[in-house]
Design a protein around this nucleic acid. Structure first.
Lengths: 214, 214
DNA sequence: GCCGCCGCGTACCGTACGGTACGGTACTGG
DNA sequence: CCAGTACCGTACCGTACGGTACGCGGCGGC
């Protein structure tokens, strides 16, 4: 058997430059046109043939998945490494996370991608929702929790479970912003308001979980 | 002119019993089948003709809108009336809101309807998102804020803006629950866990905004 | 220069689904 | 008993869109 090799060329890792351009076209289309994204429109916008799209991405879902992954890969950029913390450094770290997170979820791209993933999660077989979850809520949690634990180790914070503490932080930062945006509420946050909201959230979190150094 | 009367029979208020049955069928289908809801399936499930569906609800969007309104109308049931509050009564009221809210957003029906509304908000012309927002986040806000203000009047709470205070409450209660469910995370909360989470949220809120009676 | 190969453009196919038309049945008022 | 109305069931239409097939131009290898 194996008369033809039939190599699987669908994108699983590291899209080529041309493929990235296609994925950027998808993002642009998504942001501009809402979610009635057709393969024809993508091909036209990216100046490529539908056949190529199917060759590279398998099917529509594959294209969407690759797009979500592609977008996720650019958001991650972040220097971490938790060293010893004093109160001011802890506050700065948390503030940084809060601002970054609000920036992301308030962005058009995030809103649109989350809409897609949510719709997808509704019609089963959707790992899209899982992917967005893994790169959004779960990723930020994975990065914040070590900071919280370092804060506890330094005697600056008091909590039993870092997951629970993080979820409180998440709630204080996000509040109703994401659901309102997803449902189409206008609510445009400028940078100044994001900074204010983030600072308020961090202050509240520290009020709940902080403790004076013993 | 006006040779034919062409009365607009589309449902705007108070669906009849038969229409309610249709809307319940829609909800059932939505919960069972995810969101690939076809007019054919509705007609079959509700044992009515598609023609009747179109006569009653205008088009698919009209049917969806009526369904969302219908569901919203049953959730509202709530005795309010804010009298004088002591600390325990305030806490009870807030706890009640928190439990009710978590119950709602954790329900399959709410998740599915929010998915529909969010998808709809993505492809413009969608007042569906606005309707869900008005009957969800905004409605609960409208009912909680008077309680907060009564608490402040009684010297139990301290805040400047009740909207801001409410949004903090909202964040503490909801945290990441809604977005996770919308994205398809399993995360099933039983009644006991909801009560625990609600109580924790209320305690945290009171820790932030409460003050001992002067 | 000639030959594959890659990928663009375009035409095409199949189907699912929104929306309409129509015949048949039951009920109501006159 | 007849006319009108309401509504069920089903057949039907149009179209949008996912997916495929094919012809053509450009480019690297021999």
């Amino acid at each position: 058997m194996s008369t033809t090799v039939a190599r699987d060329e669908t994108v699983h890792e590291a899209p080529s430059a041309r493929q990235q351009a296609v994925l950027d076209a998808v993002l642009a289309l998504l942001v501009e046109e809402g979610d009635q994204l057709t393969m024809d429109a993508v091909a036209r916008r990216a100046s490529c043939s539908k056949e190529t799209l199917y060759k590279w991405f398998g099917d529509r879902d594959g294209l969407l998945t690759a797009t979500v992954r592609w977008q996720a890969s650019r958001v991650h950029a972040g220097r971490d490494a938790v060293g010893a913390l004093d109160a001011a450094a802890l506050r700065d770290r948390l503030l940084d996370f809060a601002v970054t997170w609000l920036d992301v979820i308030a962005g058009r791209t995030s809103v649109v991608l989350n809409r897609i993933a949510i719709a997808h999660a509704g019609s089963r077989k959707g790992n899209l929702g899982a992917i967005v979850l893994a790169n959004g809520r779960l990723a930020i949690g994975g990065r914040v929790k070590p900071v919280l634990e370092a804060g506890r180790a330094a005697g600056l914070l008091a909590f039993e479970d870092s997951e629970t503490a993080f979820r409180t932080f998440f709630g204080l930062v996000g509040r109703d912003v994401q659901i309102r945006l997803l449902l189409g509420d206008a609510l445009d946050l400028d940078a100044a308001e994001i900074r204010r909201d983030a600072a308020r959230a961090v202050d509240q979190f520290l009020a709940l979980y902080g403790q004076a150094r013993p």
